[in-house]
Every structure is written in C-alpha cells, then in structure tokens.
Amino acid sequence: MSDQNQVPDKPVTLLQAPVRVDYTIRAGKNNTIYLQGMAEGKILGTRDPRTGKIYVPPRGPVPTSGDMMEEVVEVSDKGTICTFCIVNVEFPGQILPVPYVGAWILLDGSDIPYMHIVGDVDASEVRMGMRVEAVWKPREEWGPTSENILYFRPNGEPDAAYETYKEHV
C-alpha cells in the first residue's frame, strides 16, 4: 500500500471552505422614489388609501392589509423618539464608536417609526418622547442615499406626550 492510502497520523479537525455570492440589488420603484427624495433633502412616504396612515420609506403593499399604496407624501424631518438602544458593545463591522444611540423616531406626519442614530447629546440623556430633528450633510454632498442624514439631535422642544406615540412602543 502506498502512503496515500494510509490513515493520516493526525485527524483533520478544520476545513476551510470559503463561500461568496455577489448580488446587484435593484432599488425598484418605491425605493427609487425614496432615494430620489433623499437627493432633494426630502423624506418621502406612501399613504394607505384605506386608513390614511403614512409609511416611511415608501412601499408597495400596506404591511397590515396587503392593499397597494400609490400616493407619495413628504413628511417632516422632525420627530419623536419612541424607543431607543444605547450600544455599548463593540462588534465586527462597526462604524460608529461606542457608546452610541440607535432610536426609532416617529417623524411628524408619519405613522411608522424611522430608524436612525441620535447624536449631539450624551447617551444618558436620551429618553422616550424626546423631540429630535435631522442633521443633514452639506447640500453639495447630497446623493440618492439615506446617509444624507448624519443623525438626529434634540431640537429643544418639550417632550411629546406618551399618548402621541404609545402605538409605536
């Protein structure tokens, strides 16, 4: 018997099998509306024809009923923090230094919270009901991307009443 047919002295305990698949995601009609709005400094959504609720970013079916939405509406870049999370743990692929605050923000005129970062405030000061506004990049740097908004910061208005956002907690 040749050496090749003998059981090796040491068992193989680890196998490296790299996997890679590349994708080209097409934004489609509704994401294109949203991204083109961003390029003009607008936050756009779509209106549920039955309930009048406004979903941001724009989407096709209403996520509760499956009805199709067609009407595009602009919402405010000011809103209310519904819930938030202070990120203290570092992880692979992290962009922002810890601690930082991720929050669900109910933009004025919309009916679904919008996820973003909260800045210009100590993490320990962030609270539910806090009123915030978008901090945009300089206009000349705008493109068709959500990154046109750097973060949201407190805008000094008194906290919103719990009743105004309790549906989104």
Binding site: R59, G60, P61, V62, P63, T64, S65, G66, D67
Partner: peptide, 8 residues
C-alpha cells in the same frame, strides 16, 4: 413578503 398577504 408577508406584507403582501396583509397579516393583520
């Protein structure tokens, strides 16, 4: 895609 079935 559950949005399409109206799951509420």
């Amino acid at each position: 895609v559950l949005d399409a079935i109206g799951p509420w």
